[in-house]
Amino acid sequence: MLKEVTHTDIISESLTLAEMILKSEQYKQYEIAKQAVKSDIDAQEMIWEFTKRKNDFEEVQRFGKYHPDYDRVSKEVRELKRKLDLYDPIAKFKKSEKQLDELLSEISLMVAHAVSEKIKVPTGNPFFDSMSCGGGCGTGGSCGCK
């Protein structure tokens, strides 16, 4: 006979799982990378500049290509984005963020499937998404669900 699971049991197990995530290597690397970006003056200046340019872009985006500064502002935003993405502390942060996201997606999938194989868990990862589709998605099976 199965033991009845109470809300208290679920909360307790959830807190244990949260503690395990906070002790994981992925989380530790994420925190280190996050602190490195926060303490890097050049990174902070680039982020500030990118945010400013992005706001400018959103303003010209309202008019699209008909705005006189659309091409210039669009190009500046793309160049700054690329510069940000290639800057080492930010690249390391993004990589650690992705690894933590993958861990959380795996855990979400495991928790959902512990309840029912039919639960869909959008992970953003095609490998895991294909595993989580339990059918009934309305695409006629083109997504790979059964």
Rank of each mutant, 00 (worst) to 15 (best):
Y66G: 10
L15V: 10
A112Q: 02
I90G: 03
Q44F: 06
H7K: 13
V121W: 02
A91R: 03
T139K: 11
E31D: 13
K92L: 11
E59G: 15
S96F: 12
P89D: 09
Y27I: 09
C145K: 00
D85Y: 03
V5N: 14
M110D: 12
R78V: 06
H67S: 03
L100W: 00
D129L: 02
S39E: 11
T16I: 00
E76G: 15
M131I: 07
D40V: 00
I107C: 09
V37M: 03
H7M: 10
Q26W: 13
K95Q: 05
V121H: 12
S108L: 10
S142M: 07
G138C: 13
T16V: 01
K98W: 04
P89V: 00
E31M: 05
P68R: 08
E106A: 05
P126A: 01
M131E: 08
I32K: 15
V60L: 04
K94E: 15
F127K: 07
D85S: 09
S142I: 11
S14W: 09
N125D: 09
K83L: 07
K146G: 06
N125T: 04
I119H: 00
V73G: 08
S116C: 06
Y87E: 14
E117W: 12
G138L: 07
G64W: 00
I21Y: 01
K98Q: 14
H7P: 14
V37I: 10
P89E: 08
V5Y: 11
H113L: 00
K54C: 09
F63D: 14
L104D: 12
Y30K: 04
R72G: 08
H67P: 01
P68C: 01
E19T: 11
E19D: 13
E19G: 06
A33W: 02
C145G: 02
S12G: 04
D42F: 01
D56V: 14
D101Q: 15
H7L: 12
L15T: 07
K75D: 09
P122T: 10
E59S: 11
A43C: 01
D69W: 00
K34G: 12
C145T: 04
M1Q: 14
V60Y: 06
D9L: 04
T139A: 13
C143T: 06
S105N: 10
G124A: 08
A112I: 10
L109R: 08
A91H: 02
I90R: 00
S142D: 11
E76C: 09
E49Q: 13
V37C: 12
Y70P: 08
T123S: 06
S24N: 09
M46P: 14
T51G: 07
H113M: 04
K81S: 05
L2A: 12
M110V: 03
E97W: 05
L84F: 03
Y70T: 01
A33K: 01
R82Y: 08
V60Q: 06
T6S: 00
Q26N: 13
G141L: 02
D42R: 01
K65C: 01
M110Q: 11
P122C: 14
D129G: 03
V115F: 06
K34T: 03
D40K: 05
M1P: 15
H67F: 00
L80A: 05
G138S: 08
S108H: 00
D69K: 13
L15A: 04
S14L: 07
C145A: 09
M131W: 00
F50W: 05
L100K: 00
K94H: 15
D56G: 05
A18F: 04
G135R: 08
G64P: 05
G144D: 00
R78M: 06
K38R: 15
P122Q: 11
